[in-house]
């Protein structure tokens, strides 16, 4: 690949999007847009990214454009990092959780904590989910119906299925370990909460069950009262 405008790399912090320093900003934005909405759309689904600007200075307008682009694609910006010595004016525009220049690693704990307190939007689906159908949502998902094998739900919040969950569920996809998955019959082919992965127990559940993280392991238990969660 010759001198790409945009390079994507992943490490323990998350996904970093490196922007080329010399080309015009509108070109870079166009490239990012193409990357996010093209065939790799699913790759970025539910991810939160760190933008690496290198030596570039951005105006407020440029940043808001960048912000909008990511918002449209349903991707969260965890931070924007730049090596530029010039005082950038990013903070004037951006919401609290965003940091700018020479960032010390982004404060993941803090951001996710505030996120959790703020009520998340809820996606309600009023039918069965069938093989091949999927939902990726930044918030909580409630399904009034079954989730059949081959269907997939990815949510940054909790997932609740008022029916049988036989497909794939990923709650707290942005790394929120307090997320949970509840189903009237919990028989997922694969269950993920934050960064933990589990398979459904072999024996059939007798009633509603809830799965959540306990000491880095996903545990399932009969669902008793909602107030605990």
């Amino acid at each position: 690949m010759k001198n790409a405008l945009v390079t994507v790399k992943g490490d323990r912090e998350g996904l970093h999007i490196f922007c080329e320093e010399t080309s015009s900003w509108s070109k870079v934005i166009a490239e990012i847009k193409e990357r996010l909405s093209g065939e790799n759309k699913n790759f970025f689904a539910g991810a939160s990214v760190i933008i690496e600007l290198g030596n570039r200075d951005l105006s407020v307008k440029d940043v808001s454009l960048l912000w909008k682009t990511f918002e449209q694609c349903g991707i969260k910006i965890k931070g924007i990092r730049t090596d530029s010595s010039a005082e950038t004016s990013i903070e004037t525009k951006e919401k609290d959780s965003e940091q700018e220049d020479r960032i010390k690693p982004v404060h993941e704990q803090e951001t996710s904590a505030t996120e959790f307190i703020s009520p998340k939007p809820v996606y309600i689906l009023n039918r069965n989910m069938r093989s091949g159908q999927n939902i990726t949502f930044d918030g909580n998902v409630i399904v009034f119906g079954d989730v059949n094998p081959g269907a997939e739900i990815i949510a940054t919040g909790f997932i609740m299925v008022m029916g049988t969950l036989r497909g794939i569920a990923h709650a707290g996809s942005s790394g929120d370990e307090r997320a949970w998955v509840m189903a009237y019959r919990l028989q997922p082919s694969l269950l993920r909460i934050a960064n933990c992965i589990a398979r459904a127990p072999e024996d059939e559940p007798l009633g509603p069950e809830i799965a959540k993280i306990n000491e880095n392991v996903i545990i399932c238990e009969p669902f008793k009262n909602i107030e605990k969660y």
């Binding site: 989910m129 069938r130 093989s131 091949g132 094998p149 081959g150």
Partner: peptide, 12 residues
């Protein structure tokens, strides 16, 4: 049955 499920989704 799995394929039928997919097809029903596509028909819908």
């Amino acid at each position: 049955v799995r394929d039928a499920d997919r097809i029903i989704g596509l028909l819908e």
